[in-house]
Design a protein around this nucleic acid. Sequence first.
DNA 1: CTCACATGTTAAG
DNA 2: TTAACCTGTGAGC
Length: 300
Amino acid sequence: MPEGHTLHRLAGALERAFAGRPAVVTSPQGRFADGAALLSGREVEEASAYGKHLFVRFAGERTLNVHLGLIGSFDVLPHAGTPPAPVGAVRVRMVNPQTYADLRGATVVQVVSPQEVAATIARLGPDPLRAGTPGNDPQRSLVRLARTGRSVAECLMDQSIIAGVGNVYRAEVLFRHRIDPFVPGAKVKPRSWMAMWADLVDLLPYGVAFGQIITLEEQLDVARALLDGRDPAAYDDSWGGIMPGERGGFVRGGAIAPFPREYYVYKRDGQPCRVCGSRVRSAVVAGRTLYWCGRCQRRH
DNA sequence: CTCACATGTTAAG
DNA sequence: TTAACCTGTGAGC
């Protein structure tokens, strides 16, 4: 389930659970034993995310860099005294007196230096979840977009152009702006691209706050009401957000109000477009399935 | 139970 | 363009 919102949410959970104290780091599965030994016992200084990269900085200039890939997961859970025995292939386990975190299935798990962290970040385009901070000016993505013949759908998935967008947000944001996915980047109106950027800046924090991708306008209305005026970007679970691992649920005052996984076009091929009723289409583009409405998203 | 497939990326051909 | 990697899930038998 990892697009950028997942990693930023995870960084927040790790930060709240582990920062400022030492953590015991192990590799129950064994494949990260050396890396774990380099980190174990050190204080966790900070957890952060850039695009789909996660960085957990430990004392002594050693940072755990994780990329979940398509199927990775990093569960952050409370324990009462002793964490349970690992289930499945747990590549990395972090433990402190209250919390344990299990990493499985990630494609990148490595201990890196501050220079390597900087180099990884330098390869990424601006991240809508870091809008307004240095290095995250959307103008930088626009410059890249404006001089490529590759389709706008490909550009949205190119992490060096814009960081954190994945296959779901791509399809959904293109639909929300009625943009033809196959239009070359250079032919996209700058205003359209900036509008998509602004939309992602608005949408992604709801993904972070609720732990799921929310793009339907009616669901966003509910999400905003549940946040009751709070800024989703300031998410922290002290107000009753869901715990990582509770995938898709929203807990408040004991009630769970999960959002059904519904989208405008993602995974809806063959079904009628929610706006115009025309059949939603799909095609494999650069190895990923793209979904769009051929009528709503004609031209741009 | 088995099997395709998944919100990702890289490297080989 | 395709295969490979890593794990969980849900559809179908």
